[in-house]
Nucleic acid binder design. Structure first.
Lengths: 241, 241
DNA sequence: TCATATTATAACTGTCGGTTATTTTGTAAC
DNA sequence: GTTACAAAATAACCGACAGTTATAATATGA
């Protein structure tokens, strides 16, 4: 069984090499701009060989997206393990998303791209990806439920719907098109400000305002500033219009 | 000048015919699934002829997206003309977006698709589209400013940032991927519920709670239910998990 | 009716995702 | 070692499609 084992390992290795090569290219160029030929050249294999390991370009791309989703899901899980009021956990998950977007901007881009209906959801990874995202959402919903129970979150909110709203908002805020980032800067805000002020904006939609989180959130610091201080946009330039 | 005029009109007509044909196809199939040949067949012209009127496939697609954006911008403008408290105007704009998504789901889909960075922003229509979207956002920001002045909207909000947050959230909620719609239904909610409950969720993030809108909003009715009644999800099935 | 400019087209090019027929390579049996 | 066989890899190919070009048809004005 030793030889078959090694063959198995080597096959796995090849697979990983292909994914790594593809990832490098997809990280540096757009999906359409990366040809299977390019990936083949990058791993130093023939294009047809790649097709022995992956059904098609989409499937190969999906495995990379899956890597990203798994990292995100881990971050979410970590938030849930700590002991804290529900409201605080929700905020922390938002921050986890934010950190993910800072640490892995390329994965985020790919995840977002994969989302916009263009890929058939036939491949086995699609289900995995969906599950990963579902996990994140479910964890968020659990935190909301906890918050409702401990009185830090509005009791009139439905945990499921609210988790959807928050996921979608996070997603939208953090995978902003470049075009809009320019608009933000033209208005005199940094992207960090834009993202962090969002929390101050959205908190009243979730929180009961019991103050349970007012103190605790202080030491979290998103991009260096507390979440509960006065809502001070602190525009940097704003000399236009 | 009469003849040159007619030539001009005829050219314009041709152009419109091409756009109409392309629209029919893009509405019924995905971008990639529509070949220039298909569009040519649909207008009963040779493919090369289309290239006399449009630089490339992207540009042709962009003109259709522009049609959609213009309709949306009109809807937003209409909201601003009525006399109402700022908070109410903001809600109405959200509803305008919702109605747009119901009346023109195909335009919405195309707009959303055009958004996901894959199109170069070189063509002249890209600028127009950006301007259209910018108009919507600016109108929303104006309404927020009015709301701050008349005391119906939190004074600690920055109008620009808030308008961005709302636009992005609306966008996310209303151009939801099909995959997520299935999740919503699996949880026992209709898509209409999902969209309308979002307003009840988000209002506390914007409103001062002065009640100025509590009464007025009553007669707006989004999908048949008032916006200020108790937050009652009224799940339809919810038999699982 | 002839010269010219516009409009349209058939035929072609280059690229890319994916497939097939064939060769190479590693393994086991003799 | 040599042969038989299976797995891995490849070169050559195919079809589809965006975009171009060389050519033809058509309308206008003299």
């Amino acid at each position: 069984m030793g030889i078959a084992d090694r063959r198995q390992r080597e096959k796995e290795q090849r697979r990983t090499e292909i994914i790594d090569a593809a990832e490098r290219l997809f990280f540096s160029r757009s999906y359409e701009d990366v040809a299977m030929e390019d990936i083949a050249r990058e791993v130093e294999l023939n294009k047809a060989t790649i097709y022995l390991y992956f059904k098609n370009k989409e499937t190969l791309f999906a495995t990379i997206v899956l890597r990203g989703v798994r990292i995100l899901a881990e971050k979410y899980t970590a938030c849930m393990e700590k002991q804290a009021p529900g409201m605080l956990k929700v905020v922390q998950m938002g921050q986890a998303y934010y950190r993910f977007s800072q640490e892995y901007p390329d994965y985020l881009r790919l995840i977002h791209f994969y989302g916009s209906e263009r890929f058939s959801r036939e491949n086995p990874y699609a289900a995995e990806i969906g599950k990963g995202y579902g996990t994140c959402r479910r964890i968020l919903a659990d935190a909301i439920r906890e918050g409702i129970d401990d009185g830090t979150i509005r009791a009139d909110l439905d945990p499921f719907l609210t988790s959807m709203y928050l996921m979608i908002s996070f997603m939208g805020i953090l995978s902003l098109e470049n075009r809009w980032k320019l608009v933000i800067e033209a208005e005199g805000f940094s992207y960090e400000q834009f993202a962090s002020e969002f929390f101050r904006f959205i908190i009243p939609a979730i929180s009961t305002g019991e103050g349970a989180c007012d103190v605790d959130v202080e030491d979290l610091e998103l991009s260096g500033r507390s979440l509960t201080g006065p809502f001070a946009p602190e525009k940097e330039k704003k000399q236009q219009s």
